[in-house]
Simulated scan of single mutants.
Amino acid sequence: MTATTLTVRLARKSAETAQICRLELEPLPGQSLPGFTPGAHLDLHLAPGLVRPYSLVNAPDEGGVYRLGVLLDPASRGGSRAVHALQAGQTLTISAPVNHFELAPQAQHHLLLGGGIGITPLLSMAQHLARQGQSFSLHYSARSRDQAAFLPRLAEADLQPHVQTHFDDGDAAQKLDLAALLAQPQAGTHLYVCGPKGYMDAVLGAARQAGWPEAQLHSEVFQATVQSLPDDAEFEVEIASSGLVVTVPPELTIAQALEQAGVRLMTSCEQGVCGTCLTRVLSGQPDHRDSYLTEEEQAANDQCLPCCSRSRSPRLVLDL
């Protein structure tokens, strides 16, 4: 699989908090940056085989710059550490922006809920909605004010009337009461949530318990649950273009086994979240373990995410 890539310059890098850095990417002289829609992300190519997705923070109508906010994850597999080591002036390879977290065009009101670094796509949404004069509210939760990102921007005149902040170390009155906030779903209101898995589970769980229709719930997966696969059986993957057959043992993913055999896939999150490695299945039945495909798409069994999927059949034939 191939994807469009761009070369950009890291124009500015600054500390948003002690653990979150802010990047501003600009085009090289004579070039321009593709447009994007609120909620979009792009992939940073940080080293050979090290590609990571990060949400765009700025409003889509701010041409000529991509802004990102990246948390230094203590459990980083290399991505956030590499980002925090970048220096202003460097050139970087990135993907063109893509969006799997779109605003619902039919919504009469947008309810944005962000936890921690999950504020990044929601800030892009909020700025866009404010500029378009659309109805929205934003609730931002963080462990403390010191760990919250982009607070000065959220306090500016265009956003401040729409924003409420909630900190775990604050007084009880300002903590987020999900049950009360989501108690009365309205037909024209759509909910958008991004943040750590526990936060997202709590938000979506409260919404579903209150009777929110699934069509009004939108989420951006911030961290996937990595499954342990000690007892999985090995299977074979056949590359349709060459006939090469690769055995995938229990301890490797399809992508890892293919790479060891000299077949490189474009991967990013390596957790079945971003869709970068989505591959067509020509024969066989995948065992889907991703958070990207819908239930209907998984049931069709005509595509899979090799970074995490396995196989229910002895062999998968992939369109590679």
Rank of each mutant, 00 (worst) to 15 (best):
Y66G: 00
L68W: 00
L68E: 03
V70S: 01
L71G: 01
L72N: 11
P74E: 09
A75Q: 10
A75Y: 12
S76M: 07
S76E: 01
S76N: 07
R77D: 09
R77I: 05
R81F: 12
A82K: 09
A82V: 05
V83D: 10
A85L: 11
L86G: 02
L86I: 02
Q87D: 12
A88G: 10
Q90V: 10
T91Y: 12
I94L: 11
I94N: 06
S95R: 12
N99T: 05
N99F: 06
N99S: 07
H100Y: 12
H100C: 12
E102P: 06
L103S: 07
L103F: 00
L103P: 06
L103R: 09
P105V: 12
P105W: 01
P105E: 08
Q106P: 08
A107T: 02
Q108S: 13
H109K: 15
H109W: 13
L111N: 08
G114V: 02
G115P: 09
G118F: 13
G118M: 13
T120R: 14
P121N: 15
L122W: 00
L122N: 01
L123A: 07
S124K: 05
S124Q: 04
M125D: 02
Q127K: 15
Q127A: 15
Q127S: 09
H128S: 08
A130I: 00
A130E: 10
R131F: 11
Q132N: 06
G133K: 12
Q134R: 15
S135Q: 10
S135D: 14
S135Y: 09
S137L: 08
L138M: 01
H139E: 09
H139G: 15
Y140I: 03
Y140W: 05
Y140R: 01
S141Q: 12
A142W: 05
S144K: 03
S144Y: 00
S144W: 03
D146Y: 12
D146R: 14
Q147T: 13
Q147M: 12
A148P: 02
